[in-house]
Design a protein around this nucleic acid. Structure first.
Lengths: 270, 270
DNA sequence: TATTATTAACACACTTTATGTGAATATGTC
DNA sequence: GACATATTCACATAAAGTGTGTTAATAATA
């Protein structure tokens, strides 16, 4: 009958993200219901779900799909990629000024730091240390870049390393500056759903001469299983202008400098 | 006039590889001449060359292109990807039998090892140690895989780490089995164009309880700047059935076991 | 300034991809 | 094991995406 216009690749990916969001919200859903709700055939919905399942973002059962524990999924690189890009770019622009040419900069594993990594290629004679494959690849695309990758247990879902080897390597270096991000922050206290990464973020603050925390507004008011200190460990916090007022005050109460980056809004999701 | 049929993406990539091969062979060529030789417009040739230049595989000058030092380019991952895949798969199939479930396997950075890495996901309770991002990503795609990435100075063109940190990390581990490959081998002696990697290959042989060398026939009869020992350091050499007879004999003279993998031939380039 | 090389803008034709249909196969339930 | 339902397969279709060459504008060299 009335055939539907073929959507662009980006639109398909967007739909799949939306499906995942819904599944994450509900925990479990019938496939037939999803097909109806997104107004696609059962076949297409199966294809979407097969794709998400192949990325280990949900489980496909007979007739229904189930989510993995929500925060674990949200932490996976494949899920966060491209999310809140405007905010992340704004944070990068506000933070890049901290970087001095010729210095050694440590960049944490986080999609928040990806735009920042792109900016770093413009600064001269930098040594960039990271445990994130994506950050390493981005910075190394500049011909004269010096990149040090920190080894350890490799996690495919984050495309980065962690664990005791990583901690040990971190303890033996002393970068001039470190950029760290957080997945969850409430009243100035930081949390991460994966213990290994919580430990790493703490160790980074200890090892770096100066450390900067990058968090967009969506991370505020959330918590996760493993606390990893508070904003007091940082010398500067960079966030965007949709940070809740009381959270902003909480950070200032720690005596930490806060830089609020303006985000140009066209069509931002809440 | 007579429009030309639009080639597939693969065909375009093949043409670009051919262009690169020619430039590598000649050192320098006029762009107009290349356009004529490959029977494409000047515009298309510019697009091809821009692409190759963006991958740092050649330099585009005004009216002509020049190659970087040949062996350096040939070593770059971006160049070797997909080259001699039939041989590499055959080597992987012949070598995979060496891997014992539950053991710790070290896999060298090399496109030769990529198919092998894919095979490794089928074996249970393995710990895979590597300095290659691609190997790490491949193995980590299996959900229960345990992957250890060796840190160090990161090289974008190889997508892997090397240098003193890498050597030190290698020295502190003792894998049950190591798969190593070589870029150049003559009369049983091994060579690599990059010193850092030559050192790593040597260190691997020292640290692993048992080590296997994987080399397809194209690597024989070549040398490079940095020698890194001979086949005597290995317990087994796996190669394909187009290995020159005298090279095969040379390896056997070292008293090393050789396994010659049969390659199914359909349309293999020389 | 004259000449040649490069890039930009566009139209075209081909390839690739997302989709839905209906049939064939697989999976679970009673 | 029979039945119902879920999934996959094979195919046709339409639109998105991509490589190409032409012409015109711009940039670089002599």
């Amino acid at each position: 009958m009335t055939r539907k216009a073929r959507p662009s690749e980006a639109a398909v990916e967007q739909r799949r993200q939306d499906i995942l969001g819904l599944v994450l919200d509900r925990g479990e859903l019938r496939i037939a219901e999803l097909a109806e709700r997104f107004d696609v055939s059962l076949m297409t919905m199966h294809r979407d779900l097969d794709d998400l399942a192949a990325r280990h973002l949900l489980r496909k059962l007979r007739g229904r799909v189930a989510s993995f524990p929500p925060l674990t999924v949200e932490t996976a690189t494949r899920f966060r990629e491209g999310l809140r890009l405007a905010e992340k770019s704004a944070l990068a622009a506000a933070a890049i000024g901290e970087v001095v040419p010729g210095s050694t900069v440590l960049v944490d594993d986080s999609t928040t730091n990806f735009p920042l990594a792109g900016q770093l290629t413009r600064i001269e004679r930098l040594t960039v240390i990271t445990n994130s494959v994506r950050v390493a690849q981005t910075v190394a695309s500049a011909p004269e870049a010096s990149v040090v990758f920190i080894g350890g247990r490799y996690h495919g879902e984050f495309e980065s390393t962690s664990g005791p080897d990583t901690l040990r390597a971190l303890a033996s270096i002393r970068p001039d500056l470190a950029f760290v991000s957080a997945t969850a922050i409430t009243h100035g206290h930081l949390y991460h759903p994966v213990q290994d990464y919580a430990l790493i973020k703490q160790e980074i603050c200890r090892s770096a001469a100066r450390s900067v925390l990058l968090v967009d507004h969506s991370k505020f008011g959330r918590t996760a299983t493993y606390p990893h200190g508070d904003v007091g460990s940082f010398d500067l916090v960079v966030t965007d202008d949709r940070i809740p007022a009381e959270e902003l005050q909480a950070i200032r109460d720690f005596g930490v400098e806060v830089r609020v980056a303006p985000v140009r809004r066209e069509e931002t999701n809440p």
